[in-house]
């Protein structure tokens, strides 16, 4: 179910990017897409009845059933990369606003 929802998030994010010319909303769309793909990766790595991949007093041995730690490591990387890209995108957005006085790309015109 969450797998399906996360795919919907990717589609919704794509719609968000395509349907607007406002730079902030485009960035929101990208973030929705990224959250979607992150949840999808975790859902792919989930194993029915698997424990969180941390050895502890409750789950002491490595022969128990665990969920996929690789998928989680990939998502951690992807979250941090997403933060970096968003910050850079926002600075570009500020530059656009400083130069043209608007966040709306359709008001800027083609050549700039």
């Amino acid at each position: 179910m969450i797998k399906f929802a996360s795919l919907l998030l990717i589609v919704i994010g794509l719609y968000g990017i395509l349907s607007t010319r406002n730079v902030i909303k485009i960035l929101v769309g990208i973030n929705v897409m990224e959250i979607g793909i992150n949840i999808f990766i975790i859902a792919i790595g989930f194993v029915n009845g698997g424990a969180a991949p941390i050895l502890s007093v409750d789950n002491p041995g490595s022969l128990l059933k665990f969920v996929d730690p690789v998928a989680q490591a990939l998502v951690l990387t992807s979250i941090v990369i997403g933060l970096g890209v968003t910050a850079l995108g926002l600075v570009f957005a500020r530059k656009i606003h400083k130069k043209h006085g608007t966040y709306d790309l359709s008001e800027i015109g083609g050549e700039s």
């Binding site: 991949p53 941390i54 050895l55 730690p69 989680q72 951690l76 933060l83 970096g84």
Partner: peptide, 29 residues
């Protein structure tokens, strides 16, 4: 004991080096 940590900081540490570089570049930009 945390397997995600062992993946991030050991088995796939090279990825993590790349990842902090991404953030480094973003901050620089």
């Amino acid at each position: 004991a945390n397997m995600v940590t062992s993946v991030i900081a050991n088995y796939r540490s090279f990825d993590t080096l790349g990842e902090v570089t991404v953030l480094f570049l973003a901050a620089l930009g």
